[in-house]
Amino acid sequence: MELRQLLIVEGINDLHAIQSLIDKRGIKLKFNHENYIRSAGDVDRAINLFGQALNNPSIQNVGIVIDANSIGIYKRLNKLKAFLKNNLPKERFDKLQIQKGGIVVVEENMPIIGIWFMPDNESKGYLEHFLAKMIPVENELWQHVLKTVDELSQKDFCEFKEKEKQKALIHTWLAWQKSPGLPFGTAVKSGYFDVNSPSVEPFLKWFENTFLLT
């Protein structure tokens, strides 16, 4: 069956984390959802793939999830737009503007376009910042993780760089669970991240708007 809905993400961790979140929240996908999420490998490849999907007239909904990283959402969007210049008519192109709840462009006879910048369409950061918000702040283990990683980052023998600190935090959190070291997707399924955290609501809303699930 022909693919009509497509969600493009950067890496395999993003894919599994998002897939598990959607599954665990019981979101009903009203389309052929076999392999509808594809991980491109990195941000450039994700953007390239997004362009390919926009060029394909059988695609009806296409979303992309990319990290704001340390360069931030505006530069990320500009990068995306620079690549898409030849893929989109000007009217659509101009509608690609940062929105708090993620970008969704809906027009008749056109594919619905969704763009989400991890973690929240505002802050710098990446998937691990999004996941961190799914851990209850008052959780004692999490408090301990925060304290420990923070202390470590002051030491001379600390290997990770400051901008990677969030990754160290999340991996430490997962290392100290009952089943230590689960990958993100499985960890979401196992409840090590709270899928009912209010922090995920904007993302789910964006997802539903992009894939017309409401």
């Binding site: 693919l3 497509l6 392999n35 594809r38 991980s39 491109a40 490998g41 490849r45 390239n48 793939l49 390919q52 999907a53």
Partner: peptide
């Protein structure tokens, strides 16, 4: 590059 990506992700 485009083709490699398309074949790689099976799009």
């Amino acid at each position: 590059k485009d083709l490699e990506l398309a074949i790689g992700v099976k799009l």
